[in-house]
Structure formats: C-alpha cells, structure tokens
Design a protein around this nucleic acid. Structure first.
Lengths: 170, 170
DNA sequence: CCTTAACTTCACAAGTTTGTGAAAACAACG
DNA sequence: CGTTGTTTTCACAAACTTGTGAAGTTAAGG
C-alpha cells in the first residue's frame, strides 16, 4: 500500500498542506481588513496541533524575520486574540490561541460600536435634534446602541451553544 | 440678543460644525478599517439635511477632486451603502443614503463569514478531523456558522425595533 | 557576574495605497 | 448633431505601510 501512514500511526501533518491552509485563511483575514503579518501569525497558531507556537517556529514556518514576529504578536496580544506565555525555566515565549478567548475579541468590537454611538450622540446635539440630518443621526445612534446591546448577548449565546456541543459530551 | 437664529427661523447649519462632525466620524470609520475617501463621503452624505449630495457638493465640502469623489461613490455603491440616482432632466447624479439600506450592508458581512466557514471546513478535511488542529478548526467553523445564522436574525430584530420606534408613532 | 539565547527596537528600503490633474467618454439640451 | 456640463479613466507623484537587518535589551543558567 502507498498510504502515507500505517494504520497504527497517528495522523501526520503534511507541512505543505498546513502551510497552504494557513496562507489561504490569512489571505481572507487580510481581505477583511486585518494587517497581513498578524493574520498569518494568527492563522499559523490556530492551525498547529498544540495551539501554541514559539517565535522561532513562527519565523521558520512563515519565512519572516524575528522582528516581524515580534510586531505581529504584540498586535495580536493587544487585541487579545492570542496570549503570551513563558515556559518556566526557558527564555522562550510561546504564543497561544485560547479558543474561548479569541471569540471574545469580536466582543471588543462593541467598544468600537460604543464610541461610534457617542459620536452620533454628539452629532445630534451639534447639528440640532430637530433638523433632518439630526434625526437621521439619532436613528443611526439607536442602531449602534442596539448593536452594543446585542453583540454581548450574541457571544453569550455562542458560549452556551458551545458548552452544549463541546462541554456536554466530550 | 446674540442668538444666531431668531426664534422663528428654522435651525441653521453651521458648515464648520458639520464639517468637524463629518471628519470625526469619518476618522472613526477609517480607524475601523474603512478606506478614507469612502468614509468621508459616506459621513458627509449621512450628515446633510436632504440625505443626498451631488458630486460637486461632495467635492466642495470635502475639498477633494472629482476623481476622488468618483472612486469613493463607486466603492460605496458597490457595497450598497449608498445608491446613485439621477434627477430626470439633469446630467447630475445624486448619491443617497437610504437609512433602511445601509444597515443591511452589515448583513453583507455574513457573506464574508460564510466564506470563512467554507475555508475552515476545508481546513478540517485537510488537516484531519481527528488531529488537535483539526478539532480546533472544526470548532471555529461552528462559530462562523453560528454567526452566519445569527447576523441576519439580528438585523431582522433591528428592523422590528426600528419599525416600532419610528414607524409606529411618526 | 558573565555568557548567551531570546525578544525588542529602530532606521531604512521596498512596495502599496491614495488622491490628483488631464484627457476621454457620456448624456441632456438646444 | 454640435455644445456643454458632468462623470469616469488613467498615469503618476506623494504619502504611508510593511518587513528587514542590525544593534540593543532582557533574563536564564552557568
């Protein structure tokens, strides 16, 4: 037989295949507005078996300089999509995707929405609540308020559904 | 009295104030990943009393060339945040924000989410559903599926709430 | 403490994006 | 069907962004 793995071996990673997937997903994230290096780094960590990678591993797999890794992980930590951990007794950091954590990063979006809402509120006041433009802004403000209220609820529902699927039977 | 407007006059636009608001909101949209000119154009139209502006008006208020206006409105039309209309018997287009329509542009996001989900599905298949990485991707896929299902519902709820507020009593 | 592995910072070169002017293409109106 | 006001296209210059190499900093382990 020409199988790549004997029946008893555990499934083996074909690094070329992994890399192709990583680059594809990263490209999609980039298209959606994410900066390229953080997107690639995030995709790589998400796709590794342990769920965590060192800077050296990232540097090698993505063929980028340590400087680029440094910048990307700083950004990703900032927006809480990964967390940094140091293995005690080593000087090597590892960067990890906490499954439960990075969904919440979407929740950070509601901070953005909040600030938009604030801007709308100010706009209504400045342009006048009785002007046509003011009324339009007021409605937009309500929309943002609605989102700010609903997004956290959405995440909560996800947490529940997730709990049911992965927590219950696993 | 030093009021800017007599009690009987209708509220009058102070263009400097309007412009300050437009630029502020546009800057926020830009920060959130939107390209600058489309953001400015969108903010300007949203903030004008009629809810629609001509290219010449945009060009003047934003101090940009007709070419820049052209590019921005093309983009905004594409993502359905504005619509183009021509006043019959004129050769001048007007660009309009349909309040009900641009919220839906958020809904377009669920197309993006759909394509991410597809990528995850492929990733699971390629990396192997029984590998740790494969399982992580599978969970991520479910998350995207969840979003794709929920986002349209969210918009629907907004439409209802909006109907109640603005449709019922106005 | 000194050595050394690992991470970070910084200035810069390469690459992209953005907005413009000028010219071309359109379309209403006489 | 030519005129004229309007929008679009295109090549280019300016501004910004990105990723790198190299030097600098930090901290584990001898």
């Amino acid at each position: 037989m020409n199988e790549k793995q004997p029946a008893t071996a555990k499934p083996q990673r074909d690094e070329a295949v992994v890399s192709a997937f990583v680059e594809r997903f990263a490209a999609q994230l980039t298209e959606a507005g994410m900066v390229r290096m953080p997107a690639r780094v995030f995709a790589a960590i998400l796709s590794c078996d342990s769920g965590a990678m060192s800077a050296a591993e990232l540097s090698e797999q993505l063929k980028i300089s340590p400087a680029a890794v440094s910048g990307a992980v700083r950004y990703l930590s900032q927006v809480t999509m990964i967390s940094r951990e140091r293995e005690p007794g080593s000087r090597r950091d590892r960067y990890r995707v906490h499954s439960d954590q990075w969904y919440e990063a979407l929740g950070n979006r509601d901070q953005i929405v909040k600030s938009w809402e604030e801007t709308m509120r100010e706009g209504v006041a400045r342009l006048g609540p009785d002007t046509p433009a003011g009324r339009r802004l007021a409605e937009t403000q309500e929309f943002f308020a609605f989102l700010g209220k609903e997004l956290p609820l959405l995440l909560e529902r996800w947490r529940e559904e997730r709990e049911r699927t992965y927590g219950g039977s696993a």
